[in-house]
Amino acid sequence: MCDIIWCKKDLGDGKVCDTVNYLDPYCFWNWEGKVACAHCGTVYYIHMIQGHMYAGPDEKPGEKPDIYPLYADQPNNGYFNYLPGIEGRTRPYTCLPRHIYLGKADMVKFSIRGRPVRGWRPQPPSAGIAGSQGFFWDIEKLSPEVWEEYQERIRKGEVKDW
């Protein structure tokens, strides 16, 4: 074991934790302290030098962890996983672009100033021969419901210039 900790802690009832904790290289390349398993909370002491486990991982029952992994998953359990930033399990990745993190496509119908932008799927087919497209997005015809919502927003004064 080295820059992952594949926790095999016996959880009782014949169950094994079987969770892979990923110790990301820039944080842990040279690091000494206690890291907790994201799933079962078992605390391990590790001392890493140049990415190698100089000491540990040694279980430290009853002690408090210094740090959590950024991400952990269970390859033998349908890839159940813990995303970054779950309190008491994973470390937050402090440099997110928003307060929410999706990791998948954000379905956006309006820009931040409230005007329609084609950020959602599926879009109705609109191409001509060989995939050709014109230079006019006929939103009123192609996506009437978004057009309606836009009119509603205009009425409410939610559409801004900036």
Partner: peptide, 21 residues
């Protein structure tokens, strides 16, 4: 595209570095 998710980066790069070290 899914490989660009944050967790995918963490996972891929952690194991890649395990090789690089």
């Amino acid at each position: 595209a899914a490989r660009n998710a944050l967790q995918a980066l963490i996972k891929t790069y952690t194991v890649t570095t395990k090789w690089l070290r």
